[in-house]
Write a protein that binds this DNA or RNA. Structure first.
Lengths: 354, 354
DNA sequence: ATGAAAGCGCTAACAT
DNA sequence: ATGTTAGCGCTTTCAT
């Protein structure tokens, strides 16, 4: 290939406007000490020539790279992509992250990192050294991985931890898993349910525990027993199936179930069908995450949204602020979730309103 | 923020190995004229220090940026993300593109560009000047947009046009829409169907036309009439609904329908249910794209896959080859599609095997 | 086969 | 308020 050079550089602009490089640089970066008329003249040249600063050169000269790196778990992401089950975590991250980045003249770069490898640090270092991002966004389970968090802490690069509430290096941005689990439970309690089962997610993810906590808290507050109503899953369809059977094959089966993600809710729906338990007449069901599949099940699932786009957007905002030297928020940043009502919830069988 | 500098640079490596910067550079880039023992010594230092070249610096000095830019339509992509209907085009692009990039030490950057704006060129120029990618991947409908194609042609950057068969600047990589439509039609013909309806997609996308062509060719080859069996849609659910009604409310309705995408197939399914036409007993249905929703419909849809991951992967390969100076393939590169058999196809009513 | 020098486009630091 | 100088980390000449 021909050696490619920047077509229009800061030099061309400076020459065209008849000013120094520095003045052009000041205009580009909105710095003070430029008279309005100068600024206007330079801007006119920029527009005329179609000049765009080279990120590489900006980075080289020790300033910002205008790059935010979003890091996701490699194996899990690829598995989701291959499965084509509609998990749209990545899409929602991009939606929230790219748009917010664009607002500030930044760019989001999406990267996969292998957590399980013993050279996580090598991989991270590789991405950081190669791209020199101004900020990094960590997602679960990376966001609670001490090795990663400590390593990034040493790198002097602002980073946000999505779905984490822990203190330590980096800015935590949580999605209020406990609160929304509580909310979902209260939603069912308000409709007359007392026996509300809960299918937990993989303990590899801290949020699994928080969701259980929220359910327990709401049940306790309502004075409802939770004896054998907790079943363990791991977010997979198969685990949801087993958990649903465990919950539904007993005589004193719950009248409602909350599943910690959509796949397990889908499995629960299937188990209910096999057991001839009608949803929502005989069993109400609320799922977590609100991924696309909730539209396509029979009945469509009432679900607790996981506000990934909003959370990523917030994380980008905090990162850009940090990069400008602003102090991160003192308190934990929490983005709250919403329940999307569809058709999988009804009052329990035999209830007055049923 | 503190001014961040590269922790380990080529200088550190050179000093550690006791050689010149140049020798290190040669080792990094696998260039000739380095004795094996030298190479080994340098590599040892690189590993020891955890050195990773800075992309910015590499780009600055006029060499590769190791960046491949994947450009998608802004409005449509954002609309898909917001709708959360499980369209996983972007995910599949990333799957194919990122993995192939990683194999070659490249990185894929995903960008949104607004086609409809009158300053497409400005937007493109912005991305190119800022990132200086080594290659660009265009997707429909951009890949057939003359304004964009011509503009990129002038930029001297290798680019691939996914889903395009046109000649001109850039390397076309097609998904064989015509062939797979023919294949789907033949699949139905082989099972005894003669009246096979077709719901076309938006004419804004060239592939819509190719799919119609494939259907027509197969029907003609089988001597089957296509009188009123073609209905126009635009890929939206609503348009699919209207098209399905047009096809199914007539007395001589088709015994099978091919829909140009999954959303329109879903709509067809719904229309059939409303009209009390059983799928697949009274109506067979094949959809295009094979997005996640095909798993969740009743019955699950037999669908023609759109091999986005494989196509993007191929595009990256061609781009990296081009960047190395290799000539692009003389013939059009075609990635073929597969039919995923599920439960929406059966022999026509009254057929021997029915 | 190796090294030294020049320069990529930009900004920080230092004049003026 | 504006201009000048030096240098970021790397690769391309061009020596040796």
């Amino acid at each position: 290939m021909a050696r490619r050079r920047q077509a229009v550089t800061i030099k061309h602009v400076a020459a065209d406007a008849g000013v120094s490089l520095q003045t052009v640089s000041r205009v580009i970066n909105n710095e003070p000490n430029v008279r309005p008329e100068m600024k206007e003249r330079v801007q006119a040249s920029i527009d005329k020539l179609g000049y765009v600063p080279s990120i590489a050169a900006q980075r080289m000269s020790g300033s910002r790279s205008y790059l935010i790196l979003a890091i996701n778990d490699r194996d899990r992401t690829i598995a989701d992509w291959r499965a084509r089950q509609g998990t749209d975590w990545v899409d929602q991250m991009l939606l929230g992250g790219m748009l917010k980045c664009a607002e500030h003249g930044y760019r989001m770069i999406f990267e996969l990192v292998d957590t399980h490898s013993d050279h996580v640090e090598r991989e991270l270092l590789g991405a950081i050294a190669a791209l020199q991002p101004d900020g990094i966004i960590l997602t679960p389970p990376h966001s609670d991985n001490p090795q990663i968090v400590n390593f990034l802490g040493e790198q002097k690069i602002p980073f946000a931890r999505i779905g984490s509430v822990q203190n330590g290096a980096g800015i935590p941005v949580s999605m209020d898993d406990e609160g929304s689990a509580r909310q979902a439970t209260e939603y069912l309690l308000a409709r007359g349910h007392r026996r509300i089962g809960f299918i937990a997610g993989s303990s590899e993810y801290a949020l699994s525990g928080w969701r259980v906590d929220g359910w327990q808290a709401a049940m306790a507050a309502a004075g409802a027993a939770i004896d054998s109503l907790l079943a363990q899953g791991d977010f997979s369809y198969a685990s949801g199936e087993a958990a649903a059977r465990q919950l539904l094959e007993r005589a004193d089966r719950p009248s409602a179930i909350i599943a910690s993600n959509d796949q397990m809710a889908l499995a629960t729906l299937e188990v209910a069908r096999a057991l001839e338990i009608a949803v929502p007449q005989d069993l109400s069901l609320i799922s977590f995450d609100n991924t696309p599949l909730v539209h396509f099940t029979q009945p469509p699932l009432t679900a607790v949204d996981q506000p990934i786009a909003a959370t990523t957007s917030k994380a980008v905002e905090l990162l850009i602020a940090a990069q400008k030297g602003e102090a991160p928020p003192a308190a934990l940043t929490v983005v709250s979730a919403t329940i999307y009502e569809r058709e999988s919830v009804a009052p329990p069988p035999g209830a007055p309103g049923a």
